[in-house]
Design a protein around this nucleic acid. Structure first.
Lengths: 135, 135
DNA sequence: CAGGATCCGACACGATACTG
DNA sequence: CAGTATCGTGTCGGATCCTG
């Protein structure tokens, strides 16, 4: 079932699906400069649990974008790095990141406006507390 | 962008989060050329249910990337189009799509290799039928 | 044909505890 | 410190029925 997307431009879907989860893009982004050790990754990213981080790294490994180096001992010495294939994705990722820098505020503003519209649709009186939904 | 403090919530995350689900990027991609009616969207994309399509469109509307035009009647005449803000995302999106065209096969090959490794780790004998996992 | 309302399965994500 | 094992929760995504 994973195949069988009969969209005209199927190969583009591969890229879209790769980024279709919360952490893949973030971890790739965090690895773009140099190999990083898991602890440093967690610190740099923030808000990701150890379990989810390893899951994400395994997933990226599975897709050939990330490589795991070194083996455990005491203390364990492990690093994760982009593969050559993973590095080919960087330009597109940075284009995305840069777009975020340039237009992220506009998106947040749009969310706020949508939120306000939803509020006043529900209630004529304004009593908005701004906890934004996730999307 | 080089050397900024890493990314508990940097603006790049806004972009990453936007594409952190299955259909947002696909629908944006399907809208990149011109406004499209929902039915045509479903046909063009393939494999997306009506419910999920509307959810996705609402979500993109919420983020200010997509605009809904026209009003219902009999028959309903509706169109969805990218907003100016949504259009600014296109270059990054097309960079992603192009990467998929160029390296999608490499990703699929890596998945197959990983799958094979998993198989022979579980069983010395090969009997694999290749239904690939989603990631 | 647009799209709302439901029920539901799958899994991504999170917190915690435990092993080397 | 790296990684696994559980358990729990949310929600994304799919199928179906129903309305204008």
């Amino acid at each position: 079932m994973p195949g069988e997307t009969y969209l005209a431009d199927c190969r583009a879907r591969v890229a879209f699906d790769l980024l279709a989860n919360t952490w893949n893009s973030v971890v790739l982004w965090a690895l773009r400069d140099a190999p990083v050790r898991p602890g440093a990754l967690r610190a740099r990213i923030g808000g990701i649990s150890a379990k989810v981080l390893t899951e994400t790294l395994r997933r990226l490994e599975y897709n050939g974008l990330v490589e795991r180096r070194g083996h455990p001992g005491s203390p364990p010495r492990v690093e994760y790095a982009l593969t050559p294939l993973g590095r080919t994705l960087l330009p597109a990722l940075e284009a995305l990141g840069e777009w975020g820098f340039d237009h992220g505020d506009a998106v947040l503003a749009a969310q706020d406006r949508a939120e306000d519209r939803a509020q006043e649709a529900a209630r004529p009186t304004r009593s908005g507390v701004g906890s934004r939904a996730s999307f």
